[in-house]
Design a protein around this nucleic acid. Structure first.
Lengths: 241, 241
DNA sequence: GCTTTCTGTCTTGTATGCAAGATAGCCAGA
DNA sequence: TCTGGCTATCTTGCATACAAGACAGAAAGC
C-alpha cells in the first residue's frame, strides 16, 4: 500500500484495516472500536473515523450502541443462518452462470489450494481461516464482476465472525476437500455440479456450527417471558439495542 | 412514517428519501445532492447529511466528486452490464433455492401483478417504473432473507438509474409478461424454470438498452487518444473523476 | 451486608468554524 | 473577437467544541 496520498485514503484505510483484521480472524466479534482510539491510532480526528464506521455499519460489519460505542457485530443465530443462506444463493448462482474456466483462473485457484495445503501442514490457523474465506472471494473474482466480489467479501467477513462465535472445532481438512471438489468440477466445466458442491460445502460448514451456543444467552429467558425474539436486522434497518 | 423520533431516524430518513426517489424514477442519475440544501430541507446540519451520503456511497447509489459535490451515480456502460450480471446471478440463485411458494406469497405476487396491470392501463409511467422494479424485490422478500432483500433493493435502484440513462423506449408490456411467466413457473413449483425465465427476462431488459448512448460522450475521443477507459469502479473503490 | 443514590468520567451525537479546492464570470489585453 | 488571468463564491474536507446519555464506583442510608 502506498502512503503518499493523505486525503481520501485514510477513511478507506480504516475500513480496510478492520475488514482485513476480521478476514484474518485477528479481530473478534464484539470487539469495541473506540472512535477516540482509532483516531489516535490513525492520526486523524474522530470525524473521519466516524465516516469509516458509518460505511462499515452499512456493510453489516459493525454496529453502534447509542452513546455506548461501536462494536464489531456479533451475529445472532438467525443472522448467521441468513448469512449462510445468502452465500449459498449467490455463490451457487455465480458458479452456475459461469461458462468457462480460463487458464489464468485455473492457475489462480490451483495456487490458492496449494497455499491452503501448506498452511494446513504448517498448522497456521489464522492464515488458514483467512485462506478458507478467501477461496470463495477468488471464485467471485473469476467473474470479473466487482459488485459480486464486494458483496461476497462482506459476507465472508461476517461468516468468519460467525465462526468465531459458534464454531467449536475447525475442520480445516474438510473445508479444503470441499474446495478441491468444487475446483475439480470447475475444471471439468461442470458448473452446475460445482454449484451443487458449493451449496453442500456451505451446508457442511453451517452444520458444523453450534447455533445454540454463544450470543443471546438470554434466549431461554426471553422465550419463557414470551418477549419478541432478537431482531434479524437488515443491514440497513434501525437497530434497537 | 412516524415523526416522533428525531435522533437516529433522520439520517435513515435522508437515505430512504433518496433511494425511494430513485426507485420511483423521480430522481434522475447525475442529480446533484448539495449537502447544504439537504441539510436545510431536513432541518439538520451538514454533518448528518454527510453521514447519509457516506452510507449511500457505500451502497453504490451516490458518489462524491472531491470539492465539487455529491451526485446520484450515472452508471457507465460497463457498470450497467455488471449490475445486470449481478442481478441475474442473485435472482436466479434465489429462485433456484426456493422450495415452496406459500399461499401468502402467491397472493402477494398476484396482487402485485394486478397492480402492474392497472398501472399499465392507467399509463402511469412513474408508478409503472416503481412496480417493475419492485416485483423483483417482492420475490426476494418471499425468501425472508433481509440480506438478499437489501442487496436486491440497491441493485434495483441502480437498474432504474441505468434505465433512465440508456432506455429509449419502455416496453412495459414485455416486462409485465416476463413477470407473469416467472410467477406461473413459481406457482407450478418449477423454480428451476422460474430461474431460467428470470435470466431471460433480465437479458431482454438489458438488450433493450442502448449502451452506446448516453454517458461518457467522450468515449470516442478517449479511445482515439488511447486513454484508459472509464473505470468499472467497485462500489467501494476510489473514484477518479 | 445490602441497596440505593449520586457524581465523575467516558462514550457518542451534533453543530459549527475554518481551510482549501473548484468553478464561473468578469475584465483586461492582444 | 478571442484568450488568459483574476477574483468572488460555492463546494466539500476535516477538526474541534460542546451537549447529553451511559456507566462505574464511591458514598450514604438502612
Amino acid at each position: 500500500m502506498q502512503d503518499s496520498q493523505t486525503s481520501e485514503t485514510t477513511q478507506k484505510a480504516i475500513e480496510e484495516t478492520i475488514v482485513s483484521g476480521i478476514l484474518s480472524a485477528r479481530i473478534r466479534p464484539g470487539t469495541r472500536l473506540s472512535e477516540n482510539q482509532l483516531a489516535t491510532l490513525f492520526g486523524v480526528s474522530r470525524t473521519r473515523v466516524r465516516e469509516a464506521m458509518m460505511r462499515l455499519e452499512t456493510r453489516g460489519i459493525v454496529h453502534v450502541s447509542p452513546r455506548r460505542g461501536w462494536f464489531v457485530v456479533e451475529p445472532s443465530a438467525e443472522e448467521a443462518i441468513a448469512v449462510y443462506e445468502a452465500r449459498r444463493v449467490i455463490e451457487a448462482g455465480l458458479l452456475r452462470s459461469m461458462r468457462v474456466l480460463t487458464g489464468a483462473g485455473r492457475e489462480a485457484l490451483d495456487a490458492h489450494l496449494n497455499e491452503e495445503k501448506s498452511a494446513m501442514t504448517a498448522g497456521d490457523r489464522q492464515r488458514l481461516t483467512y485462506l478458507m474465506g478467501d477461496f470463495h472471494i477468488r471464485i467471485a473474482e473469476l467473474s470479473g464482476n466487482a459488485i459480486i466480489v464486494d458483496i461476497l467479501r462482506d459476507l465472508t467477513a461476517r461468516t468468519i465472525l460467525i465462526s468465531m462465535l459458534y464454531q467449536s472445532e475447525f475442520h480445516a481438512a474438510q473445508s479444503h476437500d470441499g474446495h478441491c471438489r468444487i475446483f475439480q468440477a470447475m475444471q471439468a466445466s461442470d458448473f452446475g455440479r460445482a454449484a451443487e458442491l458449493a451449496v453442500e460445502h456451505l451446508d457442511e460448514v453451517e452444520m458444523g456450527l453450534d447455533l445454540t451456543a454463544r450470543p443471546d444467552p438470554l434466549s431461554e429467558l426471553r422465550s419463557s417471558l414470551s418477549l419478541p425474539p432478537r431482531s434479524v436486522s437488515s443491514t440497513i434497518g434501525p437497530k434497537k439495542p
